[in-house]
Structures are given as structure tokens and as C-alpha cells.
Amino acid sequence: MWKRSKKKSNEPLEVKDLSIHDVRKAIHAFADQKQHDVPLSVLINEDLTLDYDLLSPFLHAKPEKKFYMSRETYELFEEKDHELAREIDTVQRAVDEYIKQAEELPVIETDPYRRINYYKLEKLDLLHERPERDYYLTREENMITYRKPK
């Protein structure tokens, strides 16, 4: 079983101005080297920040800026989009539960972009606050996105 390193360096990680691309690259490197049975979610703290101790072998530093990662979609966000990361998790969990309960997709039937039907989620008491933005169901594993398909 994969474990966090028991021996931690006494030296704190150097703080650097790292881009979202740098952090994303480190996450991909971590994912490539982790054991198969270890979920990527081990990188995500409760507040959706990242565990930079686990990423340190790939980043060699701690980012100056805060980055957040969705637990449900594993999408990475900058600090300004922290609420978007939280909202995506909420909507994705509601969509997953709706599919399980209703055995159908919670989309607007006439919408060619497969826009999420918030009414369907609210009707089953799965969504308590309606998001202001639209979400769409992708064709990959019923994941949602806030980006309108082309």
C-alpha cells in the first residue's frame, strides 16, 4: 500500500511563483507515479487546497498563490475560482445521485448541449441552491463542465 513518506524534511518548502500549468504538470507526474489503487484525491485537502508535501518531489516548492482542485472532476483552479471548484463538486454529486436514483440523465431534453436541468435535481432534493451558471453533461463518464460545448 502506498503511504506518505514517514520521514519528513525539517526544511520547509521554498515558496515560488508557480503557474497553474506548473502545478498541473506536477499533478500529472504524481498521478503517473502513484500506485494504481491510490486515488488522486489524496492530493486534495478538505478545503480543496492541494497537499504540497505530496507534490513536493515534482514541484520542489510551494506555490505563492493558492490553487484548488475539484474532488469530483479533478479540475484545477486558481484562487479566484475557488467558489467554482466548490460549486462543481456540489453539482457533480447531485448529478451522480440523480442518475443513481432516477436512472436517467438530468439534462434538458431539448438542449443539444446537454445542459443540466436544475429543476430535476431540486425535485429530488439533491440541489439546495441553484447555480447562476449553466453546467453541461459531457460524454465522458457523465462528468459535468461549465464550458459550453461547441
Rank of each mutant, 00 (worst) to 15 (best):
M1H: 12
W2R: 13
S5T: 06
S5K: 11
K6D: 10
K6W: 03
K6I: 07
K8E: 13
K8C: 06
N10Q: 11
N10W: 04
N10V: 08
E11P: 00
P12L: 05
P12K: 10
L13T: 06
L13D: 04
L13G: 06
E14S: 12
E14A: 13
E14P: 05
V15W: 00
D17E: 12
D17S: 12
D17Y: 08
S19V: 02
H21I: 13
D22M: 03
D22K: 09
D22V: 04
V23E: 00
R24P: 00
R24C: 03
K25D: 05
A29I: 01
F30M: 05
F30K: 07
D32N: 13
D32S: 14
K34Y: 02
Q35I: 04
Q35F: 01
V38S: 10
V38F: 00
P39E: 09
I44Y: 08
I44S: 07
N45T: 12
N45H: 14
E46F: 08
T49E: 13
L50I: 10
D51I: 11
L55W: 03
S56P: 01
P57E: 08
L59N: 05
L59Y: 02
H60M: 11
H60L: 12
A61W: 04
P63F: 01
K66E: 10
K66L: 09
K66P: 01
K66T: 09
M69L: 15
R71Y: 09
T73N: 12
T73K: 11
T73E: 10
Y74F: 15
Y74H: 15
Y74L: 15
E75K: 15
E75T: 15
L76C: 05
F77C: 03
E78H: 08
E78N: 11
E78M: 07
D81E: 15
H82A: 14
E83W: 06
L84W: 09
L84H: 14
A85C: 10
R86Q: 14
E87I: 12
E87W: 07
E87G: 11
I88N: 07
V91A: 02
V91Q: 03
Q92N: 11
Q92G: 11
R93N: 10
R93T: 06
A94E: 02
A94I: 02
D96N: 14
E97F: 01
E97K: 15
E97Y: 03
E97R: 15
E97Q: 14
Y98N: 11
Y98S: 12
Y98R: 13
Y98G: 08
K100T: 14
Q101T: 13
E103A: 07
E104A: 14
E104C: 07
L105W: 04
P106L: 04
V107I: 15
V107T: 15
I108D: 06
I108P: 01
T110M: 03
T110S: 09
P112Q: 09
P112V: 04
R114G: 05
R114T: 06
I116Y: 03
N117Y: 01
N117P: 00
Y118Q: 07
L121D: 06
E122S: 04
D125C: 09
L127W: 04
L127S: 08
L127M: 08
L127A: 07
H128V: 06
R130S: 04
R133N: 08
R133D: 08
D134I: 00
Y135W: 00
Y136I: 01
L137S: 01
T138I: 00
E140A: 08
E141P: 00
M143F: 02
M143L: 10
M143Q: 14
I144V: 05
T145E: 00
R147M: 11
R147P: 00
